[in-house]
Design a protein around this nucleic acid. Structure first.
Lengths: 168, 168
DNA sequence: GCATGAAATTTCATACTTGAAATTATTTTC
DNA sequence: GAAAATAATTTCAAGTATGAAATTTCATGC
């Protein structure tokens, strides 16, 4: 940090070499993430005949036994409203999800897992945890802690300041 | 590393607390990656009226001036064959990409950027580098190096051993 | 020289995803 | 209490993505 030319957070043009390094680490992070996601996707398909988006929706509903409104669901998952509509439709058709009208508001719908849905998700979640552990379990606790710390720094960076979270 | 119960890479059941920690760090990494990706996607849409998949395809073609075969392109981007067909169709319609039959093999097609495509991509790539630098430039060189190291460890983990890369 | 299998793409059915427009219901304001 | 703004969803058009099946072409064995 003693050489000002090495500091790419200052105003003005950042050093080109550091810009390239940023790009390099981002592409690496993206690649690793996509690889892991593809692995999970494939395992969900082969072992449980389901998809990642369905799994994500079920995960969100699993945490809220009382159910969620469609809008709560789409903002929890950070996906568009129309998207959730389609996924829920298919989950309802499969008997994993139930739609309940909200008392006192004829616009809103409460969506929640059926018993079948809860059971199915519990099984998948247990398997999912093990898959992830096969990948991240190889990190030392220290490396894991550092990774978390770095990810926090990234999430709070200049370039990502649109709507901070409030999440459990 | 002195307490064997803390070592989750050993055979047998890993400690539940460490499994949860793996899940936690993965979800955090996924969230950060998606957040960055969404930011890039939005900027590409607003500033250049294009999409991330198109940008990715153009990036791959930019690196290979001589062009790529459809199959080379889809394996370079790690997406399905049918997917690339559709994206290339639209890029061709927009005059950014050219299709050339391969001499001596009537099955294959060589795909490459037009002048217009190259110019457009060069402009977008320069902007893209700056966006990424706004996010990752805040990391110290040391943190960046550690992140790269951790990502390498992840990519070489047990859970991800299907087809190692050969990539520049 | 033809049958067979492998290779390169496209086509297809299905599902996911987005942003925007449309719909319906609630709330606010005057 | 009608009009206007808000809110919750769905619908829509377009694009992305997948895995599988179909097509066309190439390479060989025989």
């Amino acid at each position: 940090m003693s050489d000002p030319d090495q500091c790419s957070t200052a105003l003005g043009n950042p050093a080109p070499a550091l810009v390239k390094q940023s790009l390099r680490v981002w592409l690496k992070m993206l690649k690793a993430t996509k690889h892991i996601e593809a692995t999970v996707r494939e395992k969900l398909r082969v072992e449980f005949d389901t998809t990642l988006p369905r799994f994500d929706v079920m995960a969100a509903l699993y945490r809220f036994e009382e159910g969620l409104k469609m809008s709560e669901l789409s903002s929890a998952l950070r996906v568009s409203n129309g998207n959730v509509t389609g996924i829920i439709e298919r989950l309802v058709a499969d008997g994993a999800v139930l739609r309940v009208p909200v008392a006192g508001d004829k616009r809103a719908m409460l969506v929640r897992l059926t018993h079948k849905g809860r059971d199915e998700f519990a099984t998948m979640a247990a398997a999912h945890e093990l898959w992830i552990n096969e990948i991240f379990g190889g990190l030392t606790p220290d490396a894991t802690a550092r990774l978390i710390c770095i990810l926090d720094t990234i999430e709070h960076s200049q370039g990502l300041n649109s709507g901070e979270d409030h999440d459990a």
